[in-house]
Amino acid sequence: MKRLISAFALCVCLSGCATSGAQKAPGADLSKLKTFYVAKLPADERGIERLVAARLTQMGFEATSGAEPKPVQAADALVTYQDRWMWDITMYMIRLNVQIRDGRTGSILATGESMRPSLQRKSPEGMVQEVLTEIFKQ
């Protein structure tokens, strides 16, 4: 019985490891971006767009957020994201994807991802910080 429980626990533990990373489109220059608009994902009821904008502000950029899919005022970059959540005792964010887009054309300039299963979970703020750090360290 103990062996079975151990095997089951091992399966669950091995079913994922924390990963994070980012990629930049060929020729994209993120250093030119100063102003950002974070578009709220319509399905997001947790205010992740505000966390992204707050983190960008902490990083020294000028960032706003809102429900409009495109910036109302001109911005150098449009930021979009997809957050995925799971339940394990409590709800937690398992994956966050962020795309940095050209503010005028909407083309993706860079993309980043953080994936953290239950045992390696972080707060949404931590996930946002992790992804944005990955994107801008390139």
Binding site: A25, P26, Q82, R95, N97, Q99, I108, T111
Partner: peptide, 12 residues
């Protein structure tokens, strides 16, 4: 022809 895969949104 350069292709940059910017987003692959997958369900869990």
């Amino acid at each position: 022809l350069a292709a940059f895969i910017g987003k692959v949104d997958q369900p869990m």
